[in-house]
Amino acid sequence: MILKGLGVSQGIVKGKVKIIKSTSDHSNFEEGDILVTRITDPTMVMLMNKAAGIICDIGGVTSHPSIISRELGIPCVVATKNATQKLKDGDIVKMNGRSGHISRGEKNEFD
């Protein structure tokens, strides 16, 4: 396990990390990526629709990413404190939206 946060939307998924710090990062986001950001905001609506999962540095069980991820039915972990620093673009991670655990995973693991 490389990170732990608050699991706010259930589900287990693995995917490629994409760190989003500003709107200039949006264009490289691909369908199925794991969206990693400090906290989501309304400009990220398109990214959230494509994301397989969402990880945030801050937030609570009723914050923006938590509400949206539950509506989308995708896993979400918030309040990790430093996901945007510990993870890098292209990392393959496995995230558990119930337990809040994030671990490294190879893309073909469990395939």
Binding site: V45, I68, L72, G73
Partner: peptide, 13 residues
């Protein structure tokens, strides 16, 4: 369910 979820998410935004 996923399509309605995206609609709901868009409305929240």
């Amino acid at each position: 369910a996923r399509r309605l979820g995206k609609l709901t998410a868009a409305c929240y935004h």
